[in-house]
Simulated scan of single mutants.
Amino acid sequence: MASLTASGAVCKDLKLVHENDFFYTGLHKPENISSPLGSKVTLLNAQHIPGLNSLGISFARIDFRPGGINPLHLHPRGSEILTVIEGTLEVGFVTSSPEYRLFTKVLQKGDVFVFPIGLVHYQKNPMKVPAVAYASLNSQNPGSVQLANTVFGSTPEINTDILVEVFQLDKKVISHGQMKF
Rank of each mutant, 00 (worst) to 15 (best):
S35T: 15
V151G: 00
V10W: 07
L55C: 13
I174V: 09
T25K: 15
G153Q: 02
T25N: 14
S175D: 15
N53D: 14
S3C: 12
F103R: 10
V145C: 07
T104D: 11
D170T: 07
V112H: 03
V129F: 13
L169A: 11
A133Q: 01
S175L: 15
L74R: 07
A2I: 08
V91H: 02
H176V: 11
I69E: 08
H28V: 11
G153K: 05
I57C: 08
Y122F: 15
V10M: 08
I49A: 04
Q178W: 00
L147Q: 07
Q146V: 13
H48M: 14
C11H: 13
G68S: 01
D21Y: 04
K128R: 14
T150W: 00
S139M: 02
I85W: 07
A133I: 09
T95H: 09
V17Y: 10
I162R: 02
N149W: 02
L37N: 12
V10H: 10
K128N: 15
F93H: 04
P36R: 07
I62T: 11
E157N: 14
A131Y: 01
Q178I: 03
S58P: 04
P71V: 00
H18N: 15
I49F: 09
D111G: 05
V106R: 05
I62P: 00
Y134H: 13
G87Y: 01
I33H: 07
T104V: 07
S35W: 09
V120E: 05
D111A: 09
L27G: 11
P156M: 08
N32K: 14
S39C: 10
F113G: 02
L44M: 08
K180Y: 12
M127F: 11
K105C: 01
K124I: 10
E19R: 14
Q47D: 14
